[in-house]
């Protein structure tokens, strides 16, 4: 009796197995072949290689060349602003022209020249970690190293007596996370190495901490902001000429290939090696200014693969 019960159970189990096997649909089989895991990189945490003032974690795509033209106008208010300078539009505190080129999808080299100090800058930017959709990598990490060379004539005979005094360096790991389709945030500690500082109380080497964020308003329009904490970290409180923490806000408009940014910021200068240490204007006393960035991407070295060959007539 016991034995036959066992066989009935065995029969039921096997019959069930057989039914399950034949009920296996194409869809069930297909889900086992899900290969989206291979394509799980989170792209476009930020639209551009820069947020407002600071770098983002984005690098150029391979063989893409970005021409960036940036402009900072004069103070909107205060002593140097108001209607006499058309709210700063008569003044250009800094201009910048630069080229960023993607050697690979993860490695970008950049070169630029600023009006202020006739500063030439050269940087390398390497994407080290990229966020994934499955959460196995929650953040992006990009490493930035930049050298700046002041090319202007010395103001005094002794200023650049030592040629090395013209040089400055920025080392900056950048951490970011795309929290949703709309919201991305970024933290970037940095170390700025200078040869000279205007105020003897201001240390030549500064440790700073930057924050940046993006809120996408529409698919092509974003609100962006960044803030760099300089005062209160490695810099003493009392300096002869007060210096401020740079804060920039802006609207970023993407049109496929072009990015236009309309920005407001208190920093007069465009390059990190200049603005991190030398922002003498404050948002609270009319020192805020308008600025813009125009970025145009060019794809060099088109592929010869006929399946992906695109043509513009």
């Amino acid at each position: 009796m016991k034995k036959s019960k066992f066989f009935i159970y065995l029969f039921l189990v096997l019959a069930l197995l057989a039914m399950r096997a034949s009920a296996q649909t194409a869809e069930a089989l297909l889900s086992q072949l899900d290969s989206t895991k291979k394509f799980n990189k989170v792209e476009a945490t930020f639209k551009a290689t820069h947020v407002v003032l600071s770098h983002s974690t984005e690098t150029q795509k391979k063989h893409d060349l970005d021409l960036r033209i940036r402009h900072h106008f004069g103070d909107i208010g205060g002593e140097f602003g108001s209607a006499h300078t058309l709210y700063g539009l008569d003044v250009a505190t800094d201009l910048f022209i630069g080229l960023d080129y993607g050697l690979t999808d993860n490695l970008t080299v950049g070169f630029g020249r600023s009006k202020h100090d006739e500063l030439f800058n050269l940087y390398v930017k390497q994407k080290l970690l990229q966020q994934t959709t499955d959460g196995s990598m929650p953040i992006n990490l990009t490493f930035l190293a930049q050298a700046g060379l002041v090319a202007r004539k010395p103001f005094t005979d002794t200023e650049f007596a030592n040629y090395g005094n013209r040089l400055s360096y920025l080392i900056q790991p950048i951490f970011s996370r795309k929290f949703s389709q709309r919201i991305s945030l970024e933290v970037m500690p940095a170390f700025l190495i200078r040869s000279v500082s205007a105020d003897p109380n201001d240390p030549k080497n500064l440790f700073t901490l930057g924050f940046a964020g993006r809120v996408k308003l529409t698919k092509r329009l974003s609100f962006v902001a960044d803030y760099t904490l300089v005062n209160g970290l490695s810099r003493p409180n009392k300096l002869a000429v007060p210096l401020y923490n740079p804060l920039g806000i802006g609207l970023e408009i993407e049109t496929g290939g072009h990015i236009f940014s309309l920005n407001f910021m208190n920093s007069e200068y465009i390059n990190e090696n200049s603005f991190i240490a030398n922002t003498k204007k404050s948002w609270t006393d009319g020192g805020v200014r308008f600025g813009f960035t125009i970025s145009r991407n060019f794809s060099l070295f088109k592929s010869k693969n006929p399946d992906t060959k695109s043509t513009i007539y």
Binding site: F39, K61, S299
Partner: peptide, 18 residues
């Protein structure tokens, strides 16, 4: 029964920005 699927991100364009 036939089923086909494509991970959309696997589509490669000449221009990476595109």
């Amino acid at each position: 029964e036939l089923a086909v699927q494509l991970p959309v991100k696997s589509l490669e364009f000449d221009k990476k920005l595109m």
